[in-house]
């Protein structure tokens, strides 16, 4: 771990200025991802600006929606009565992530910005374009069980590991960012990048940009929503694949649907094609399957993760079917 200075920011503006003014600086939230990476040598900031104690730790009601402060802990967010009532998919997604100890420390912003769990990324002795642009992608031709089937490139096949982000993607969350130039809002779908030829950039954020809040829009249909995560053991593992689903039925027809997939891409994957195929159609297993297939038509599995296509189909169908049954 390279030596670093530690600064506790007093307010968001100070934090932004401190990081923006120093190329080697980084924001520190809960630290469960960044501190780990510093020990592994994956990250080496020379200044940590601790933003975990900024007054960004509230969950507030907005017009039918919620505004979640960036410093709200994952465990608190999952337990919040309004989250559980209005966006159960989000509560379930949070609870399916990590362990109790980690959820107690991890912040909303930190969770969004956590980096891939690709073992080659985390090992400084194996080539990785995300870590060292141009050095190669060790996952391609290697161990790909946790890697992408959608939206990948020849430079990087990593997946985004956050469950919370998948749920937020399904909910059309908006991320509030404070940068050196002021505040702006980003739909979560625009926060994340696909790897393309610059896999070292997970998001569109610039150095010094600080996430201050996430806004969840008014979405009554989200009261019937679910998160389903498929993993190699019953708990405490990253997703093989996952799905966040919101299903709004009008009798037996799909009035509206939101679907986001985890474990399949460099970002939470909003399954827009599947949604389109479902909207206005019947809420049957057949329709669910066809919609999943429509989304997976563009899948490019790797040797070692071909199973993710069938698994994604299976979990999408299961999640929608269960939601539809709930609704009857």
């Amino acid at each position: 771990m390279t030596p670093f200075e530690y600064l506790r920011a007093g307010d968001p503006g100070e934090a932004v200025a401190a990081v923006a003014g120093r190329p080697g600086a980084a924001f520190l939230g809960g630290g469960t991802n960044l501190v780990d990476h510093m020990k592994l040598g994956v990250a080496g900031p020379d200044l940590l600006v601790d933003v975990s104690r900024l007054p960004l730790d509230r969950v507030e009601e907005t017009a039918g929606g919620l505004r979640v402060g960036a410093a709200v802990r994952n465990s608190d967010l999952a337990a919040h009565p309004l989250v559980r009532e209005r966006y159960p998919v989000l509560a379930r997604a949070l609870l399916s992530g990590a362990s109790g100890q980690l959820r107690n420390v991890a912040t909303t912003a930190g969770n969004l910005l956590q980096r891939t769990r690709c073992p080659y990324f985390q090992d400084v002795t194996t080539p990785c374009n995300k870590r060292v642009p141009g050095s190669g992608c060790s996952a391609i031709g290697g161990y790909t069980r946790y890697h992408a089937i959608l939206g990948a490139s020849e430079h990087c096949v990593a997946t985004h590991p956050s469950d919370m982000a998948v749920a937020m993607a399904a909910l059309d969350a908006v991320v509030v960012v404070l940068g050196p130039g002021g505040e702006r809002r980003l739909p979560i779908g625009e926060l994340y990048r696909l790897p393309g030829d610059a896999p070292q950039r997970d998001t569109v954020l610039e150095h010094g940009d600080l996430i201050t809040a996430v806004e969840l829009p008014h979405l009554p249909a989200a009261r019937r929503s679910a998160y389903r995560k498929v993993r190699d053991r019953a708990s405490f593992s990253f997703a093989l694949v996952s799905v966040a689903a919101v299903l709004d039925l009008d009798g037996d027809a799909v009035r509206d649907v939101r679907l986001a997939l985890g474990g399949v891409a460099h970002k939470p994957w909003r399954a827009a094609r599947a949604e389109e195929a479902l909207r206005g159609g019947p809420a049957t297993e057949d329709a669910f399957r066809r919609a999943a297939d429509a989304e997976l038509a563009g899948a490019r599995p790797l040797p070692g993760n071909e199973f993710k296509v069938a698994m994604t189909r299976g979990v999408v169908v299961a999640a929608l079917r269960d939601l539809a049954e709930e609704g009857r």
Binding site: R8, L28, G31, T32, V35, L48, D50, Q101, N104, V105
Partner: peptide, 17 residues
């Protein structure tokens, strides 16, 4: 840590101040 269980291996010393 402040009454809440955490993994102390990932808490940087300064965060415990």
């Amino acid at each position: 840590l402040d009454g809440v269980p955490v993994c102390s291996c990932l808490v940087a010393a300064g965060q415990a101040e």
